[in-house]
Computed example of a mutant assay.
Amino acid sequence: MKHCLALLLLAAPAWAVELLPRDWPVQASLSGRIDMESYLSDGAPPALLFSDDELFFNPRVSLFADVHFGSHWYAFAQARFDRGFDPGLNAGGKGRIDEYFLRWTPLDAPVINLQAGKFATVFGNWVQRHLAWDNPFITAPLAYENVLIMTDRTAPAGAGGFLGRRNRTDTKGSWLPVIWGPSYATGASVFGRIERFDYAFEIKNASLSSRPTAWRADEVGFNAPTYSGRLGFRPDAAWNLGISGSTGAYMIGEPTPGLPAGSERDDYQQSTLGFDVSYAHGHLQLWSEVILSRFEVPNVGNADSLSYFIEAKYKFTESLFAALRWNQQFFDTVPNGAGGNATWESRIMRIDTAVGYRFNRSLQLKLQYSYGHENSPAENAEHLLATQLTWRF
């Protein structure tokens, strides 16, 4: 039976179920993906891996619904069944709807599109390829998953308590990265393309760094929204250049414990600026982003960081590819409460390597090894080995 199932997976093409007759004005389809992932680390799992085990398995089923109402209206929804949005976040497993939106394209050309719902951020160029089938790696770049000592739940009492977190193992239940993965926050956007230029602007209920529970409108409302945007330029078919920006309140409590008297959570912003470039020619693809972010920390001051990654993917054949990514993240100083300054986080570097094989249009296998080093005594893992088997249906 196991051998029969394996042969079926190898032979099956990717497909989507057409839910309505093709001659109807409304077209609807349903497709899906099954991801089987495993992670092995030499200590506390790094980044946004929430399991307490050094070796753990993470299965995921994703369903995608696409509905076209003529040529000007489009609706989409993505549902997942797994152990949490990030591996191990909900050990018992649950289902949820991660994305849903309605899009209106008033013109026949994609010059302008209006969209509302819960969807991925327009910031940068990695989010556009974050799904398992499009991402050459299993994990995200450093800026999108490296957990910092920044918290969104309470305000630190002062610089001493804030800086004291640097030597602790990541407290992922309350700490944040610069950008939390694809950031599926709730809101509205306008985007389009005019000749060689792309533009996209959005207003969301939560910041780029906000955790998945904050992305829902019923958890964090719109009283302190985040504004983000990206402007892109395509000088030719091979190159795509972009600049992104975002600003908004990053704390989610209302009221937030520990804030100075007379202040509110929207007095403390996360402001982020990004530059991205991508290149594609023949079998080679290159991507890079530089991201600068500032958190206004209550009772401390401005905490700045700079991160970047350079990523390359090369297709040896139609099926076999390899990828390499270099990541680094640096941090500025904040007042240490004793008349001086101190770097607020530990500098970190990471190199990601991956090899992937597509058996056909529906089945893909990836293997990734990552080595990261952080200038900190915290006991975070340095080595990570991951595998991912993806079946599209």
Rank of each mutant, 00 (worst) to 15 (best):
D236L: 05
T247I: 15
V220N: 04
S207I: 05
L241I: 12
R234Q: 13
T226C: 01
A238Y: 08
L231P: 11
S244A: 12
R234A: 14
D236H: 08
D218G: 09
Y227V: 12
S246F: 07
V220E: 04
P225W: 02
P225G: 03
F222W: 06
L208Y: 03
W239G: 11
D236A: 07
A217P: 00
A237L: 14
W239C: 12
S209F: 09
N240G: 15
S228W: 01
S244M: 13
I203E: 00
S210T: 05
K204N: 01
L231K: 13
D218K: 14
R234W: 06
G221E: 11
D236S: 08
V220T: 11
R211T: 02
G232M: 03
P225F: 04
N205I: 02
F222C: 03
T247W: 09
R230H: 06
T247G: 14
R211M: 11
S210F: 00
A238P: 03
N223I: 11
A224N: 03
L241N: 13
N205R: 05
N205K: 06
S228L: 09
W215C: 03
A217R: 14
K204D: 02
R216I: 06
A206V: 01
A224R: 03
S210Y: 01
N240I: 13
G229W: 10
R216C: 00
G232T: 12
R211S: 07
R230L: 07
S207G: 10
P225M: 00
S209K: 01
A224V: 01
R216F: 05
A217W: 07
A214I: 04
S209M: 03
G242E: 14
K204H: 02
I203S: 08
S207R: 05
R211I: 00
T247M: 15
D236T: 06
L208S: 04
S210H: 01
P225C: 01
G232L: 08
P225I: 03
F233Q: 08
W239A: 08
Y227P: 03
S207A: 15
A206C: 03
V220K: 02
G245T: 10
A214P: 01
F222V: 02
G232A: 09
N240L: 14
D236R: 08
N240V: 14
A224E: 02
G221S: 15
A206Y: 02
T213S: 12
T226I: 00
P212T: 09
S210D: 09
G221N: 14
G229F: 10
P235H: 02
A206M: 00
D236G: 10
E219S: 15
S246K: 11
E219K: 10
R211E: 00
W239R: 15
I243C: 13
S228Y: 08
S246E: 13
R230Y: 11
T213A: 12
S210N: 07
A238M: 11
D218M: 05
T226L: 07
K204R: 12
T213Q: 12
D236C: 04
G232S: 08
P225E: 00
R211D: 01
E219Q: 15
